[in-house]
Structures are given as structure tokens and as C-alpha cells.
Design a binder for these strands. Structure first.
Length: 804
RNA sequence: GCCGGAAUGGCGGAACCGGUAGACGCAGCGGACUCAAAAUCCGCCGCUCGCGAGGGCAUGAGAGUUCGAGUCUCUCUUCCGGCACCA
């Protein structure tokens, strides 16, 4: 055994060993319990970033831990390969997105391999390949025939200069990112998946997911957003035609207090009124052009304009003015709301602004009146007042009675409403799964038959930022109708990339299956036992995957009993870094933290900082997410090259608990590098020393106490303290005056504990010291109860020098 | 704006059930070794008063519950994630 720790050779050797044994290939062996451990697959953006290293290290720690516990573990890897960045890169470099994507995959795969993850590369998949995305198309055609996929109009950002649809990300302060043109909102036909058909089940099943963080379940619950309320009709007359304006409310108890109605700019009643009212038409036009993003919409000033029309109150027959409100969305409920200013904050402000009557109908904690300014108490539940027959009723009684009375008149009923909307999957972009629909002038929208799937995306296209590239390629869109064989056009929109990532986890069970979306191997591996990924996916990706799991089960007939795709979920925190800039050149220039030298005072506070290369002073701008714009990205490759994969892995685990944000600091890496070196040095000296059979009870107590804690922390995924335990055990071993049986036992425990986190060095030393051939096949260490029981109090007192 | 989180030394974090706050590591300070430096090793290290023994104050702010609160409740502040076309 050599004296110096050289990570490069140790890691090369360990990886060669694993490769020669095909150590990470998984088969459907039934003798042992299966454990499917999955980290969210990466988008092939170019290089790995620290977030990837963190995500896959966490997954690998669990994978190796469960292997040592005797499970049949699957940990696969693939590529979420369709998406917008490839088109942006194509525009910048004039390279086809396909080429750019495949190059990135090759580079990032080599990086992942250099980190020594226990991945089964035999199952690698990329969503941009037709053998994957054909099953997106296959599922879509089935949902389409069932009516679970359908066409309707949806709103998009339209850049009038480039004549193209923009992603929300490409809209900067209301303008197109490339053209600077004011973005317009446009309604275009799109395909939707009817996820709302599963709203009730997706909500109810959250209670059956004990392995998910409460936080995530709560977010999903609120997102699905069940509201129990009443659908209420307000009759009105339009051109001698009797019609009803429908609204939905959870506060039917305040119905008597309704003093106005507000409808969306797209609502038929508003459109009708605008025909004779140019000013109103202008206002509605402005509303329609407004923001698409809900966050922006929620913050705009609430504005309205009267239509001049009135509707009758369904209970009092009072005439109520109908307004157009810029805050009312056509996509939500009925596209209309009733305004009850006395008991709703938004309506209160609206009524004050436009001098509409405010009529209190609920007795609240502050009394029977609602003087300005608005107080939250006004919106609380209370007893009805000024409400005729409903006076004195509480919330539930009032709602029940009013719903009953409305029903008798045919003007209302109780209704459940969901916040969740159907999933619009059409994208007017090139680099995605073609939607398998043929538009026939005679037969309409015809799904592509199975025999003609996949509809292959041409890979030689270089988008230029204008229009939809596929719509410019007749050789792609010109086709024949599958039903009548007459000339027809293919749909040129592609699918949302969330479709790709909504089922890849199941495909990993059988990526080579060319006859079907999934086969019985999916029944073996699914559900994923442990899923690991960023908290930013808490709602959309996870909800879509839960929806797709249900769809797949119904369409394939496989995976009986598996409604939920992910049994346990670990949401990792983001990786942050310091950022620095200099104003020396007149404009703000961001300096990468790796190039900054920091001066600190005697207490360690930053006094000044300068760029190492030229000494120019730089300003510390705090800590934030790694981004290109702030030039504070840390390239993990530099870290791997300098200290080795094991140090990179150990540090990312040690620095912070997996669910916390992780603040990157190159300097802190030193402790991890030093520790691994110390393990090596200790093992080297141990390998050469003569050993006695003595047992040091105090040291042994400390080792087993740390091990006990580490096993507890392992189970609750507090991996940073497991890494700490490794350090504590080494500290304890180094206090032994001589090499003895305790050294040997402690070293054996240490290497096994270290193996999931820093697998190469653990593998190497395990063999060198003659503990066995493969540390991954060793049993996971368990604390010895006897070592912990004996004279526990006395030992603790002596060890820590103070009473516990 | 709405939904969900987070806040503990100079820094990352520990404290499992409400019971000695600061484990482990970084940075810093002092020392050993060295011609010197790096590396390594030993010691110190929340703030504050005190020569010292020892005392006082401390878990974002403010209230509350409790014999006892970093931990539970309420209000607030700041930061982070999501808000349906970034992935």
C-alpha cells in the first residue's frame, strides 16, 4: 500500500473494478426486496453544475446504502433532452439542436461517470429519441380518442416582430427578449390533457403518501384547490333574449350583499356590450393584451368599466350593474364573479374606487357596519343580517338555505370547483415531441394510427427565432389523412417537455422495449421507492407524473396497485454561491468567486476583496443562486480535478443537510479533503503496524455511540451528520495510543460508513486492509449494544469531561 | 398579490421527545517543527464584564404558554422556492 493518497489513481482503479464486474447492472431478481432509487434526470445543458453533483450524490448515497443493506437496487440515468435552451443555442451558434444536445449528453455522461455513481448505464435513455417519444405520441392518441385530450383555445405570448410565440421566460418586462417589442396576448387553438378529470383522486391520494414531505403535499393540495360553493345564476335580458349570467362563490351566505357583477374581458356579455361602446372596447382590448403570468396578473391595479347592462338578483330581483374587470379570468370558473364589497377585500376596494354601494349582510367581530378602511374581520364568517328570511343564520345554514331556494328557482345549486386547470401541452416550437394529429379538410383532427408512429422529428433543423420551424417544412407537414387518404397537414406544434418527464421513471424499467410503452418489468420496479430532486419541482412535475402514472396504468394494464409513482420523496435545496463585482471599468463587471481574494479582520469578517489576477478591488454582493448573469457558477470539474470525486462528493454531503440550501464555499472543501487524506494516512500506518488484541472500552464506546447516531441520521436522511460521524470516529481512533482490536473494528466501521459517500477510497482501503474484496458487499455496520451499555454514565463523564 | 419554506457564532451547520445552545468542519488566533515557507501536529476560539474564581447577555424582532422554549402559539421583518410556456 502506498503512503500518499492519490485520488486520481484510486478512483480510476475503483471504477475499473466496478466496470469489470458490471457492478451496477440491475436485474429483476426476486430473491431480495427491490429498491428503486431515482434522482431527477438532468437537462443536458452543457456541463454538470453543483446542483447536479449534489442531487446525484444524495441519490448515490442512498443507492449504495440500500445495496449494503441487502436490497436489489436500481439506479438509472437518462436525459431530459427536449427543450428551449437547445433552440436558443442553435440560434446563437447555428448548430442544430439535436447536435448540440447529443454533444452535451456525451460530455455530461463522462462527468457523471468520473464521479463514480452506481448507475446502471444499460438503461440510459434520452427523451429526444424517437424510441422514447413515440410513446408520448402513443399515449396522446389514446387519450385523444377517449376525450381525455382535446382541443380548445389557450392564451400565449405573441411577439409581433418575430411573429412567434414566446415562453414566459422570454418575456422581459412585457417585451420580447430578442426584439424588445411589446408582447401581446393571443388566443390560439391548443391541445389539452384533461388532468381535471383526476383532480379529486389526485387530491385524496395525497393522504396515502406518508413518505412525502408535508410541505409538498400541502402545496399540491392548495394547487389542486378544491372549493365547495354554490353556482348562482343572475338572469338578464339581451336583445329580447332571456339569458343567465352564472358565477361561482364559496360565500353564498353573502349573496344578498351582492351589489355588482364583474366579468372577464373575453366574456360574451362584455363582448356584446362593447359593440356599441368604443370606450369599453378599448378597455377590454387593454385587458386582453395584459399579462399572461398569474404572478403579474395578481399585482396589477384592479380596474373596471361598466357595460351598461344589468342582471337581476336571483333572490331579490334587484337590478345589479355588470362591469368588466381586468382581474377576472375567463379561464377560471365561469369568467364572472359577484361583487360583495362588504365582505371581500378586493370587492371592497373596487366598490370604493368606483363608488358602488356597500351593503353589509354579515355580523362580524367588530359589529354590523363596515366603515373604511377595510378590516380583515369583515370577511370572517358570522350571522346573516339585513338578509330578510336568512337573518340569524350562520354560515353553513345560510349557504344550505340559499342553495335550496336557488335550486327551486332553477338559478343555482351546490358545486365543487377546482383551482386546477387542464394541462395545455401544445408548444409552437421545434425541439419537442411532434403532436400526432393530422388535420384533414374532410375528417377533421385525426390521430395518427399506431402503425404510423412515431411521427419523427427531423433532426437537421436550425431554428432562427421566427415562427414555428416545423410549419416551414412541407416535407414534414404534408401528408395524407389516415382515414380518407386525401392530402392533409400534420400538426406542427410539439408537446410540452413536461410530458417527457412525466413517465420516464417507468420507462427505465424497460428502455429497450420496442413493442410497447412498458412491459411487465415496470410492474417489478415501480413504484420508485425513493425519488430525489429539487424543491422547485414540488408542484408541476410531480403532479403531472402522478397524473401520468394513473393514465399509464389504465392504458398499459400493467403496474396493478401502483397509483402513485413515488413512494418516498426527498426534495433537495438549491446550491447558492457568493457573488462579487467591480465597477472599475465604469460598468458593473461580475467576477467569479474563484478569482477573488478576500481580506478578513481578526474576527474573520470580510474587510475587503480584490481580483487575484490584477488586484482590482471588488464588491461583495451577497449570496444567491448560481447564474450566468452574476458569473458566480462553480464548475464542479475544477473541484473534481483538484481534489478528486470522493472529496467533491463528501463535501457536498457534509456541508449541509440535503433539504437545505447549500452555500458554496471553495475554502470549506479543505476540511473534507483533509479528512479523506487522514483516513488514508491512518489506514496506511495501521497496515504496517503490529496490533495487539486489546480493547479500549472508552474509545469503543465513542465509536459505537457515533455509529448509532449515524444510523439514525441515515434513516432520516440527515447525511451531513453521517459525514460528521465519520470524522468523529476517525478522531476517536487517532486518540488510541497503539494499534489494537479497537482500531481494527473502528476502521472497519468507518470504511463501511464512508462507502456510500466516498466510495472509491472506501473500496480501495477495504481491499488493501484485507477486510474483504468489495466493501459494497459487506454488511452495513450496526452498533453493538454491549459496547454502549457498559458503565455508560461513567464513560460519558470521562469522555466529555462533564456530566451529561 | 397568492401558496409553501427558512432565519442559531466571522461562516456551513449540531441540538432526535420542550430539559447543559453551538457537536463536526471552515475561517481566525497562539505555539511546535523548519534557514524559511507549505504541509503536518498541539492549544485557544459566541458576545460581554472580570487579573482570576466567576458573573451577565445570547438562537431574525416582539408578545404568549411553561418550573423550563432554538424547539410550542400568535403578530411582524427579511430572504428563498412556486404561480401553469425555464427545466
Amino acid at each position: 500500500m502506498q503512503e500518499a493518497y492519490e485520488p486520481a489513481s484510486v478512483e480510476r482503479e475503483a471504477q475499473a473494478f466496478w466496470a469489470s464486474r458490471d457492478s451496477f447492472r440491475s436485474t429483476e431478481a426476486r430473491a431480495r426486496p427491490k429498491f428503486y432509487c431515482l434522482s431527477m434526470f438532468p437537462y443536458p445543458s452543457g456541463k454538470l453544475h453543483m446542483g447536479h453533483v449534489r442531487n446525484y450524490t444524495i441519490g448515490d448515497v442512498l443507492t449504495r446504502y440500500y445495496r449494503m443493506r441487502g436490497y436489489n437496487v436500481l439506479q438509472p440515468m437518462g436525459w431530459d433532452a427536449f427543450g428551449l435552451p437547445a433552440e436558443n443555442a442553435a440560434m446563437a451558434n447555428e448548430v442544430p439542436p439535436a447536435r448540440w444536445t447529443y454533444d452535451n449528453i456525451a460530455y455530461m455522461k463522462a462527468q457523471l461517470q468520473s464521479l463514480g455513481f452506481a448507475l446502471d448505464w444499460n438503461r440510459e435513455l434520452a427523451t429526444c429519441k424517437s424510441d422514447y417519444y413515440r410513446w408520448n405520441q402513443w399515449v396522446f392518441t389514446r387519450l385523444f380518442r377517449k376525450g381525455l385530450a382535446y382541443k380548445k383555445t389557450g392564451a400565449v405570448n405573441w411577439d409581433p416582430v418575430d411573429q412567434t410565440v414566446l415562453a414566459n421566460e422570454q418575456v422581459i418586462e412585457g417585451r420580447g427578449w430578442r426584439t424588445g417589442a411589446l408582447v401581446e396576448k393571443r388566443e390560439i387553438p391548443m391541445y389539452f390533457l384533461r388532468i381535471t378529470a383526476y383532480a379529486e383522486e389526485l387530491l385524496a391520494a395525497l393522504d396515502k403518501l406518508p413518505g412525502w414531505p408535508e410541505q409538498v403535499k400541502l402545496m399540491q393540495k392548495n394547487w389542486i384547490g378544491r372549493s365547495d360553493g354554490v353556482r348562482i345564476g343572475f338572469p338578464y335580458r339581451l336583445e329580447n333574449d332571456d339569458r343567465v349570467l352564472w358565477v361561482f362563490t364559496t360565500r353564498a351566505d353573502t349573496l344578498i350583499g351582492a351589489t355588482f357583477m364583474a366579468v372577464a374581458a373575453e366574456h360574451p356579455i362584455a363582448v356584446h356590450a362593447a359593440r356599441r361602446n368604443p370606450e369599453l372596447a378599448k378597455f377590454m382590448d387593454a385587458c386582453r393584451k395584459g399579462a399572461l403570468i398569474e404572478a403579474d396578473l395578481a399585482q396589477i391595479e384592479k380596474k373596471g368599466m361598466p357595460t351598461g347592462l344589468f342582471a337581476s338578483h336571483p333572490l331579490t330581483n334587484e337590478q345589479i350593474p355588470v362591469w368588466v374587470g381586468n382581474y377576472v379570468l375567463m379561464g377560471y370558473g365561469e369568467g364572472a364573479v359577484m361583487g360583495v364589497p362588504a365582505h371581500d377585500e378586493r370587492d371592497y376596494e373596487f366598490a370604493l374606487k368606483y363608488k358602488l354601494p356597500i351593503k353589509p349582510v354579515i355580523r362580524h367581530a367588530l359589529g354590523d357596519t363596515v366603515p373604511a378602511p377595510w378590516k380583515p374581520e369583515y370577511a370572517e364568517y358570522g350571522v346573516c343580517i339585513n338578509s330578510g328570511p336568512y337573518d340569524g343564520l350562520g354560515y353553513q345554514e345560510a349557504v344550505d338555505r340559499i342553495a335550496e331556494d336557488l335550486r327551486a328557482k332553477g338559478l343555482g345549486e351546490k358545486q365543487v370547483q377546482w383551482r386546477l386547470r387542464d394541462w395545455g401541452i401544445s408548444r409552437q416550437r421545434y425541439w419537442g415531441t411532434p403532436i400526432p394529429i393530422v388535420h384533414c379538410p374532410a375528417c377533421g383532427d385525426v390521430p395518427v394510427p399506431d402503425a404510423e408512429l412515431p411521427v419523427v422529428l427531423p433532426e437537421d433543423v436550425v431554428p432562427d427565432g421566427t415562427g414555428n420551424p416545423l410549419a416551414k417544412k412541407p416535407e414534414f407537414y404534408q401528408t395524407k389523412c389516415p382515414q380518407c387518404s386525401r392530402p392533409a397537414n400534420r400538426e406542427t406544434d410539439t408537446m410540452d417537455t413536461f410530458v417527457d418527464s412525466s413517465w420516464y421513471f417507468a420507462r427505465f424499467a424497460c428502455p429497450d422495449q420496442s413493442k410497447a410503452m412498458l412491459d411487465e418489468r415496470a410492474s417489478y420496479w415501480m413504484p420508485v421507492d425513493q425519488y430525489i430532486g429539487g424543491i422547485e419541482h414540488a408542484i408541476l412535475h410531480l403532479l403531472y407524473s402522478r397524473f401520468f402514472q394513473r393514465v399509464m396504468r389504465e392504458e398499459t394494464g400493467l403496474m396493478p396497485g401502483v397509483a402513485e409513482p413515488f413512494t418516498n420523496l426527498l426534495t433537495q435545496g438549491m446550491v447558492l454561491a457568493e457573488s462579487y463585482y467591480t465597477d472599475a471599468s465604469g460598468r458593473r463587471e461580475w467576477v467569479n468567486p474563484a478569482e477573488v481574494e478576500v481580506q478578513r479582520d481578526s474576527k474573520g469578517n470580510i474587510v475587503s476583496a480584490k481580483r487575484a489576477s490584477d488586484g482590482i478591488p471588488v464588491v461583495y454582493d451577497g449570496v444567491g443562486t448560481m447564474s450566468k448573469s452574476k458569473n458566480n457558477g462553480v464548475d464542479p470539474q475544477a473541484l473534481i480535478d483538484e481534489h478528486g470525486a470522493d472529496t467533491a462528493r463528501f463535501y457536498t454531503i457534509f456541508a449541509s443537510p440535503p433539504t437545505n440550501t447549500l452555500e458554496w464555499s471553495d475554502k470549506n472543501v479543505a476540511g473534507s479533503a483533509r479528512f479523506l487524506k487522514s483516513v488514508w494516512t491512518f489506514a496506511y500506518r495501521f497496515s504496517r503496524a503490529s496490533k495487539s488484541k486489546d480493547v479500549d472500552r472508552k474509545i469503543r464506546f465513542r465509536i459505537h455511540a457515533d455509529l448509532k447516531q449515524a444510523n439514525f441520521d441515515m434513516q432520516r436522511h440527515q447525511f451531513n451528520t453521517v459525514a460528521s460521524a465519520c470524522m468523529k470516529i476517525l478522531n476517536a481512533l487517532e486518540e488510541l495510543p497503539e494499534w489494537n482490536a479497537t482500531s481494527e473494528e473502528g476502521l472497519s466501521i468507518l470504511l463501511r460508513l464512508l462507502s456510500p459517500i466516498a466510495p472509491h477510497i472506501a473500496h480501495h482501503l477495504w481491499r488493501e486492509l484485507g477486510f474483504g474484496e468489495d466493501v459494497m458487499k459487506a454488511p452495513w455496520p450496526e452498533p453493538d449494544a454491549a459496547a454502549l451499555e457498559q458503565d455508560e454514565i461513567e464513560l460519558v463523564v470521562q469522555v466529555n469531561g462533564k456530566l451529561r
